[in-house]
Design a protein around this nucleic acid. Sequence first.
RNA 1: GCCGGCAUGGCGGAACUGGCAGACGCGCGGGACUUAAAAUCCCGUUCCCGCAAGGGAGUGCGGGUUCGAUCCCCGCUGCCGGUACCA
Length: 800
Amino acid sequence: MKHEFKKIEPKWQKKWEDAGIFKAEDFSTKPKFYGLVEFPYPSGAGMHVGHIKAYSSLEVVSRKRRMQGYNVMFPIGFDAFGLPTENYAIKTNTHPRIITDKNIEKFSNQLRSVGFSFDWDRVVDTSSEDYYKWTQWIFLKLFEKGLVFRDKTLVNYCPSCKVVLSNEDSQGGKCDICHSDVIQLPKDVWYLRITEYADRLLKGLDDVDYPENIKQQQVNWIGKSTGAFVDFTIADADEKLEIYTTRPDTLFGVTFMVMAPEHPMIDKYADRITNMDAINAYRDECAKKTEFERTQLVKDKTGLRIEGLEAVNPVNGKKIPIYIADYVMMGYGTGAIMAVPAHDQRDWEFATKFGIDIIEVIKGGDITREAWTGDGEMVNSDYLNGLTNKKDSIARMLEVLEEKGIGRAGVQFKMKDWAFNRQRYWGEPIPLIHCEHCGVVAVPYEELPLRLPEVKDFAPGEDGQSPLAKIDSFVNCTCPKCGRPAKRETDTMPQWAGSSWYFLRYCDAHNDHAFADMDKLKYWMPVDWYNGGMEHVTRHLIYSRFWHQFLYDIGVVNTPEPYAKRSYQGLILGPDGEKMSKSRGNVVDPLDIVDIYGADTLRVYVLFMGDYGSASPWNDSSVKGCKRFLDRVAGLTDLLDKKSGPSGIESSLHKTIKKVSEDIEAMKFNTAIAALMTLLNEIYKADSISRDELITYLKLLSPFAPHITEEIYESIGGEGFLTVSAWPVYDEAKTVDATIDVGVQVNGKVRGVASLPVGCTKEEAMDIARNQEKVAAFLAGKTIVKEIYVPGKILNFVVK
RNA sequence: GCCGGCAUGGCGGAACUGGCAGACGCGCGGGACUUAAAAUCCCGUUCCCGCAAGGGAGUGCGGGUUCGAUCCCCGCUGCCGGUACCA
C-alpha cells in the first residue's frame, strides 16, 4: 500500500469524530484515566511545534489507555484571556473577543489536523462568560475566607505593559510577557494570601509523583527557612525592633543592625535622627535602582549610619549602631537584621567597609579574612560557650529567648503573596465594590458573572488605570450592603487566574449551577497524569495547586492535590540549535510539516527526535527519515502471507510488545519507536508476515501514527476501529531466547562472544567460552587465577 | 554565590540495578535501478595501524574502588535550567 497521507488523514479524523470514540464518559464502570496537557494560549501566530511535542506524549498514553480498556478523558481548551491579544486589539482596533474567537478556531483546526484524540465536547474557553463566572466565584470564596487583601507596598511594575506583576511573573527582574526590565513602584494592589498555603504547598509534594527536579524547584521557590524572631530595642525609647535570623546562636556576635531603606521606623524617629537629609538622599538613590542594578552590585555594599539612633542587643544589653543599607530587603523577614560580621559574609563586607567591630563567636575560621559560616566551638557567648553543635547552640539560645520573652522560634518563606491584578481590559473583572461606608464589598454571587463592559478604547490609561475605569456605567454602582452609591473595582485578574482551575471544569464543562458537579469530580479527579513545560513549575503549577488546596479546604473538591503525576517535555530548538524565535527566523511551522510529510510523520518525529525531557534541535532530514519509516510500514501489505509457514518474527514481536508497552509508560518514546523500526527491518528481512502479526504491529504503532495504521487495518479487512481495539499482550515465555549471547572477557577485555543455552551451569559456560578460538589464544600459556560467570551478562577469565 | 541537571561517533541520540559501548534514525561513502536526476533498494560507516586476518585506543579532564566503570567514589573543566544581598 502507498502512504497517501493527504487523503487518509482527513478521512480518519472525520470518521473518529463522527463515531465519537474520543468522548469521555462520566461514571463509566471502566477504570478512568484523566490525562491533561497544558491548554494553549490562542495567539495569532497559531500552533508551534512545541505544542505538538507537549501534547504528543499524553496523546500516545491516552490512545494506549483506550486500547487497554480505560475510560479516558483527554481534554483541551483555551487559556484565552491575556495581554498579547489585547495589545493586538489595540493595534488593530478590533475587539479582543473577535480576535480570540478567530484564534481559537484556527487553533482548533490545527489541532484536529494533527489527529489528536481530544474530547471536543469538553472544550473550555477561560474568556467566555460561563467560564469566568466561576473564576470570579472562586475569587469571591477566597475573599470570603480572608485570603484576598489590599496593600500598598513596593510592587513589580512593567512600564512597557503598564501592569503590576506578581513575583512569579517577574522572575529575574524581567517582565514575563514582554521581557523588559521590571521596576519597583509603591502601589495599592490586590493580593492573594498564597503564603498562608506555603507549608501546605511544600508538604503536598510528598504525596504526588512529580520528577525530583520539579519538586526541588518548587521547594526552592517556596524557600522555607527556620529561625527566630528576636526583639531588639531602640536605646532610650520604649520601642521594639524585631529582626529575623536563622542563627540566633550568634547573638553575642552582633555588632550592628541594618534596616531596609523603606523601614517605617526611620520615619517614626525622624526627629531624633540627626542626618535625616543624607538618609533621605540615600533612600531616593535606592528607589531609583532597578532590580538589575541591585543584583549586579552584589559585591559593593552601600549604606549609611543612622545618626542619633542606637539599638540594644537584648542578650547582653550592649548598645550598637544602626545602619540603613539596600542589601536588606523590606519584603523578607522584618526588614531589619542583626548583623554578625564574623559569621555572615555580607555583614562582614559591610563591617569591613564601614570599620565596624567583628566579634568571633564560632571558632574555626580566620575572621580577619572572611566570615566563618561553618561549624565550631562557641566562644564569647556566655552560656553558649563550649557548645560545638549548631543544633544544640540554637536550641539553647531559643530556650533563653523564650524564657526572657525576647524572642521566639519562627519560619520565613521566600515566596511572597500573589499580586493579583492587571490594569488591563482583557481579563476577568474583579468582582469587588468600593463603598465609602462599608469598605470593600463583594459582588453578590447571584450577580455573577460580572461581565466585561463594552469599551471603545482598550488601551490602558497613562495614569496606570485599567480601561474599565473610563466606563462610568461600569464603575458606578450601588453598594450591595447599604444600597448607597459605590464604585466597582476596575482592575482585572492576571493571566493565571483562569488556568488555576480549568482542569476541574473539564470534568463538567457545561454546568451552569456549579463550577463542576461533585460526583463528577469524585469520578474524574485527581488528574492522573499532567504534562507541561518547565516554565510553569514556579507559576501555574504553584498557583493551581494553591487554588485547588483552597477549594479542598472549603469542601468543594475531593482531593487535596490536583495532579497525581507530573511530567515535562524538553524544548524543540531551531535547526541551528538555538531557541526558536521569530527574530532568529528559525521557527518551524507544524502545519508545513503536516502539509509536506503528513501528521503521522510529524507525530512520530517529535517523539523520536530525542529524549522527551531534553531539548533537541529540529532536523528536516530526520523528519524525512520518519516519513520513510511510515512509507515502509505501508509497504508491509505487500509482504502479507508472502511465504507459507511461520514468518520467524514471533519472538521479536513479543519482545517489541513488551518494549513498546513499557517505554510508553516511562515516556521513552524515542526508544519505543526505535524498537518498532528494528522490528520493521526484521520483517523485511523475513520477507513475510501473517495477518495477525501485522495487526499486532499496527496496534503498537497506532498511538504514534494513528492514521496510516488505521488505513492499513481497514485495507486488510480489520473490523471496527484499530484505534480502540485491544492493546496487544505479550507472552513472557516468547520473549526469552533458547540461547543467549554473552560476552567473554579475558582480564576484563572482551575477546569473544559465547552462545550459551539458557540455564547452563557455570562449568558448561566456562567450557564453551574457553574453547572459543580467540579466547583460547589469549588464555594460551597463562594461568587462570579466577573465573567469573554472571548468568546472562558476562564471562571473565582472570589470568596471570 | 546557591540549587538542579548534562557532557557518548560527522549529527540527534541508545545502553536494565556495575557486565559485548555506539541500538534506532540522520548524514556520508560505495553499488543496483534510470538516458539522467529524484525516489527506492542493497552494502559499509567510532577513531588509529593494516589489502586482509588482526591489533591498539576510546564515553569532557585527572585520580580511585572493582575480575570488570558511560554507570559508583574523590578532585577538576565546560555547558544548560532555576534562583539570587532571603538575614
